[in-house]
Design a binder for these strands. Structure first.
Lengths: 207, 207
DNA sequence: GTCTATACAAGGATAGAC
DNA sequence: GTCTATCCTTGTATAGAC
């Protein structure tokens, strides 16, 4: 494991535990028995550590999406995709919650363009839901598609905020299960008979 | 306006603009042409300013809930309530997003008990939805109630995160309108004919 | 009771040694 | 490539003026 990876792993561990603003660079360095300045060498600023973690998260998830898109559309498959994503988000929960810290970066524009990422997410979900409509799993009007897409961008991103902020002793599996139930329920409101069976198949496997 | 109020107002303004962690106590003091130490006099720590703002937000909203509960239950009335709450949340958006900063306080337990607040919210929404069921505006199974309650606690709190984090030029009215549309749509999935008319009456007034 | 001036500790960042 | 010494900013606390 390279120094960079060591730093990232330790930083993620501490950030998940205490929150980004409460983790000092000196603390990370002390834990790894290296000097604080060494952190500055590998990552210029503390924020850059957060950015690198976000990047690592995004890479992992991109491949998950691609795997899903390579198979025939089904609600069961979609729920499996979201399960993997939820677990990944849980792993990086401190990073998401700490990202308010980089809010100021948005205007400077040199880092991630969140606006753009957000719109790619909208487009991605729209595609997925339209395919599920065509495949006969969901029955959606144009408005329904827009609604579900907005629902996914909101709930799919911020469930982890709720879980982390309000749950004192979060346990990954039960937390993820709760939000997958929410998602299944939401989808079933628009599901065809085929779709409901597909959801049922997913739920059955989950037990 | 008392000094305390001056400080709170200026702090809210700056926090909404730049985020809690990016606003220094010296900056607030400079803007008000007072000394930094004066802030320590009125509020012990920087966090206490955030807490006071949260408290002010909560007080404003408690009365909104009470007003709603004093009238006969209707979806139109409920949407009006949520509109007021959304506007209030927009006003305090920086405070919400900054509250990750106080995450560590949760364990110490002397401040707000978020777990308790969360559960009161659950109970409050459950009561509201059950009343709307009895009043013939919604048609809900036990599971539906649970689902809608969880939906409200998530969407009703974190829409403001999404709006602030992803929207570059947020305008209060159009933002609130978007999320009220989302909420109306969600409720209409469970609404009776009476309920749908009530939602329609709200939407018509909104234009 | 309010406020200023000031001191101090802790954290992030950086120049330069090895 | 790794690290130390150092600087600067920020939050916090307090002595003492009015």
């Amino acid at each position: 494991m390279t120094r960079k990876e060591q730093i990232l792993n330790k930083a993620l561990e501490l950030i998940n535990e205490k929150g980004f603003v409460h983790v000092g660079v000196r603390e990370i360095a002390r834990e790894l028995k290296i000097s604080p300045g060494n952190l500055s060498y590998h990552f210029g600023k503390k924020e850059d550590v957060l950015m690198a973690l976000l990047e690592r998260y995004r890479e992992a998830n991109t491949s998950l999406y691609e795997t899903y898109l390579a198979t025939p559309p089904s609600l069961k498959g979609f729920l499996h995709l979201m399960k993997s994503i939820f677990e990944s988000q849980y792993l990086y929960r401190g990073v998401f919650i700490g990202n308010q810290y980089v809010q100021a970066q948005l205007e400077s524009g040199d880092h991630f363009n969140y606006q753009e990422i957000y719109e790619r997410r909208l487009a991605g979900f729209a595609r997925i839901f339209k395919e599920l409509h065509t495949a006969g799993h969901l029955k959606l009007s144009e408005e329904d598609v827009r609604f579900l897409v907005f629902h996914m961008t909101l709930a799919g991103r911020f469930w982890i905020y709720e879980a982390t902020l309000f749950d004192k002793s979060p346990d990954r599996d039960s937390t993820v299960k709760h939000y997958l139930w929410m998602l299944s329920k939401q989808l079933s409101l628009f599901a065809t008979e085929t779709g409901r069976q597909s959801i049922g198949a997913f739920t059955a496997e989950l037990e």
